[in-house]
């Protein structure tokens, strides 16, 4: 009898970039909408501006998030969008964690 109904190696394949709680919160918010700006994301995640910026940079490096900067009425505005790759990675992450939760009878 196997301990898990799934290959435990799949856990090791969990996306490390998404597995970080702050980045997971960012990606979860962006997955629910088409686009969100920096200010909204900061308000909802409760992160400091610098912290949020550094996490966004990591997600941008992995091409999970597209960042668009512009000036609107003389004020800088940064809008963020989850890319196709980001959406696929987030779905895969959710699938793997759902399997783990199911193994503990939590899903």
């Amino acid at each position: 009898m196997k301990l898990f109904d799934f290959d435990p190696k799949e856990l090791a394949s969990l996306d490390k970039v998404l597995h970080e709680p702050a980045r997971l919160a960012i990606v979860a918010c962006l997955a629910a909408v088409e686009e969100m700006d920096f200010v909204f994301l900061q308000g909802q995640t409760g992160m400091t501006g610098g912290n949020l910026s550094s996490h966004i940079r990591k997600l941008e490096e992995k091409a999970y998030v597209a960042v668009h900067k512009e000036f609107r009425e003389g004020k800088p505005r940064t809008s963020l969008k989850l890319t196709g790759e980001g959406r696929t990675a987030f779905r895969a992450y959710l699938r793997t964690t759902a399997m783990l939760l199911a193994a503990f009878g939590e899903a």
Binding site: V33, E34, M36, F38, V39, F40
Partner: peptide
Amino acid sequence: VEPRLGSVVFTE
């Protein structure tokens, strides 16, 4: 509101 809350574009 927007300077405090920010803005969101919902899905198509």
